[in-house]
């Protein structure tokens, strides 16, 4: 296995040094294996705070795998092994002293397919605050639920039917409910794994608007198959291919002036 630093990564990291925002998540030489198969090879990337960072690339390129390393969701996959260093605010999240359950309360996640719990809309949003003891009274919990639903721009649509099941909403509403559920525990980082791939264009547009609003409070990392979406919502973009982080940088630079041939081929639609 080639453990030398990728020259491309070295080159593009100079671009990232110009980034004005401080680093929230830093990954250095991350390798991920599923059993004997290596899914990520030597990935190093810095993710700035309170901005939207997009991971793009063809299917199976490892971008979702990397995303799931950041909240240690890969721990739930028995065959998965993670090597290398991932830090949040300078602290190693794979430190044995760190509790992954606590970590996931700080790093929220929204999934590809909306997955509201089969509970009422209210209970869906109140789930996180309840298990983490974020409210002292019913009124306070009501407050958190309303606030979260408003932030996810779902409040007006559901305020009269909070007792109805979350699974009865439309796909786009369900995904906003999942975002509200994530916001309710007030995480620092929100990971979004192709959050719009199961939604129609109108619902997609609403989620994208939402991301633009949320980035003033949260660090957002989004995995997407849609290059237009990456271009619309993100400030920084990283391109993955075959488990390698090929190129990363300002979104405008990646889409207008990619330095790597593979990136150029991908964004011009020659493969993937």
């Amino acid at each position: 296995m080639d453990m030398r630093p990728d020259p491309l990564v070295m080159m593009t990291s100079s671009v990232q040094d110009q980034a004005p925002k401080p680093v929230k998540v830093a990954a250095k030489n991350v390798n991920v294996y599923y059993g004997a198969k290596q899914a990520l090879k030597d990935v190093s990337v810095d993710i700035p705070v309170k901005a939207v960072t997009a991971f793009i690339g063809p299917s199976g390129c490892g971008k979702s795998t990397f995303l799931r390393c950041i909240n240690r969701m890969n721990d739930t996959v028995a065959s998965c092994r993670v090597e290398g260093l991932i830090q949040i605010d300078g602290k190693d999240i794979y430190d044995p002293a760190l509790d992954p359950v606590q970590l996931r309360a700080r790093v929220g996640m929204v999934f590809q397919k909306p997955n509201p719990f089969p509970k009422s809309i209210y209970d869906n949003v109140a789930y996180g605050p309840r298990i983490h003891g974020l409210s002292r009274s019913k009124a306070e919990l009501d407050e958190i639920v309303e606030h979260s639903l408003r932030k996810a721009s779902l409040w007006e649509e559901v305020k009269d039917r909070l007792k109805d099941s979350g699974t009865g909403l439309s796909g786009g509403q369900q995904q906003r409910l999942c975002i509200a559920r994530t916001i309710a525990i007030n995480p620092e980082i929100i990971l979004m794994d192709e959050p719009c791939s199961a939604l129609d264009p109108i619902a997609t547009a609403r989620i994208e608007e939402l991301m633009a609003e949320l980035r003033s409070n949260f660090t957002i990392i989004i995995v997407t198959h849609s290059m237009q979406q990456a271009a619309r919502v993100s400030q920084r973009t990283a391109f993955f291919h075959l488990g390698i982080l090929v190129e990363k940088g300002e979104t405008s630079q990646i889409f207008t002036n990619p330095t790597d041939k593979r990136t150029q081929d991908y964004i011009t639609g020659r493969f993937g």
């Binding site: 969701m73 359950v101 996640m109 997955n115 719990f117 996180g128 298990i131 999942c178 525990i185």
Partner: peptide
């Protein structure tokens, strides 16, 4: 569905 488990784990449950 696994997605429900993932959802709960991702909430820090």
């Amino acid at each position: 569905p696994q997605s429900l488990r993932d959802g709960a784990y991702a909430m820090g449950a």
